[in-house]
Nucleic acid binder design. Structure first.
Length: 338
DNA sequence: AAGCGATGCAACCGCGATTCC
DNA sequence: CGGAATCGCGGTTGCATCGCT
């Protein structure tokens, strides 16, 4: 039993939008708004389109404040930095780039920026591997990993370096103060996920977590308000599940743990287990999990990749083509004040 | 000039999250 | 409170265009 379709698939038009359809949709929304129901919209307008398709067309193309093409270097930097920090959360990234849509950014990343990064990797690697014709897409390189896997790998490495600060850092860029705080906060969450410490937290008086997210906008709001006391309480922020932040204000927090926080803890546990299995060279891992995290088999090459990335970032941070996220988060669009 | 692979982008699809009744 | 409806997101696909041979 699948889910019921959102519209009558047989009676809706698919494919490219005609100028007439565009005009009808645009005129209607500008006059009356969406009415809070995209599914009903096409009927009202009199076009044979799925409501979801109308929503997409409006958000990605017809909206008046849309910017198309021509990403600036600054935008490149923001996208790269945020992708490295939070992964493929295109809507969150898009929220930091006025006029850009998640779809646009996703396409731009997939078609250009990724190549910009991995292309350098290819170049760098092939210069070291004499006589090698290795293509990163041939099944042995990092590109065989899913975005999610890369994201997880990055997170894993962050956590590793936090847990063992004496290790050579493989995180690709110098963190700015906010990112450093967030990384510290991850450590706090790690500690809190320890049952003993969790117990301590629970017994140590009421706690409360306010969740700001998943969009970074929320952080922005907190940090751009000069009169907001939270500005001075950054140590109390903890990162949950990538883009979202939780703020530890006091009472009742653990009971109010959000879904995202639970997911984060589950993910952390998963990573811990995998790391454990890796260390113990265990082969008893469930096959599905093994498949999902196959890349850990190739951890050495992955480390190599991240080390390379780190070098590239450092080298580039001195040039005008800076990939250094510390620059990015200083960007005025984020308006983060320390 | 034609063929063909690569590229870029708009649009679709499936599914989890959220809202509504 | 539970199920249905809707929203919103990320991944994927399809197709027009480009550029190389």
């Amino acid at each position: 039993m699948g889910r019921a379709p959102c519209c009558d698939k047989a009676n809706v038009k698919k494919g490219p939008w005609s100028p007439e359809e565009d005009a009808k949709l645009k005129n209607y929304i500008e006059k009356y708004g969406t009415g809070g129901n995209w599914i009903a919209l096409p009927q009202k307008i009199g076009i044979k389109r799925c409501g979801k398709s109308c929503r997409l067309r409006w958000l990605n193309y017809l909206r008046p404040d849309i910017k198309h093409g021509g990403f600036s270097e600054e935008e490149d930097n923001i996208i790269c930095s945020l992708y490295i920090s939070i992964g493929s959360r295109w809507s969150v990234i898009a929220a930091q780039l006025p006029g850009r849509t998640d779809n646009d950014i996703k396409n731009y990343w997939n078609t250009r920026l990724k190549k910009k990064l991995f292309g350098r990797r290819k170049q760098s690697q092939s210069s070291r591997l004499t006589g090698s014709t290795e293509d990163p897409r041939d099944g042995n390189g990092m590109d065989t990993l899913s975005n999610s896997a890369i994201e997880r790998l990055q997170l894993h490495m962050e956590l590793q370096s936090l847990q063992n600060p004496n290790n050579i850092s493989m995180w690709p860029c110098k963190l700015n103060p906010i990112q450093e705080r967030i990384m510290q906060s991850i450590q706090l969450v790690n500690e809190s996920s320890n049952p003993l410490i969790m117990q301590h937290v629970l017994n140590d008086g009421p706690q409360k977590v306010e969740l700001f997210g998943p969009s970074y906008n929320c952080i922005q709001q907190k940090y751009t308000s000069p009169s907001n006391m939270l500005v001075n309480q950054m140590d109390n922020f903890i990162n949950v599940d990538g883009g979202s932040l939780a703020y530890v204000t006091g009472p009742d927090c653990i009971k109010q743990t959000s879904m995202e926080f639970q997911q984060y803890l589950a993910f952390q546990a998963e990573i811990d287990q995998i790391s454990c299995n890796k260390r113990a060279n265990s082969i008893s891992v469930d096959q599905a999990q093994t498949n999902e995290f196959d890349f850990f088999k190739d951890m050495d090459s992955a480390k190599d990749m991240m080390t390379w990335w780190s070098n590239e970032f450092e080298a580039n941070s001195a040039s005008s083509t800076s990939w250094d996220s510390s620059n990015v988060l200083d960007h005025q669009q984020l308006e983060l004040k320390y």
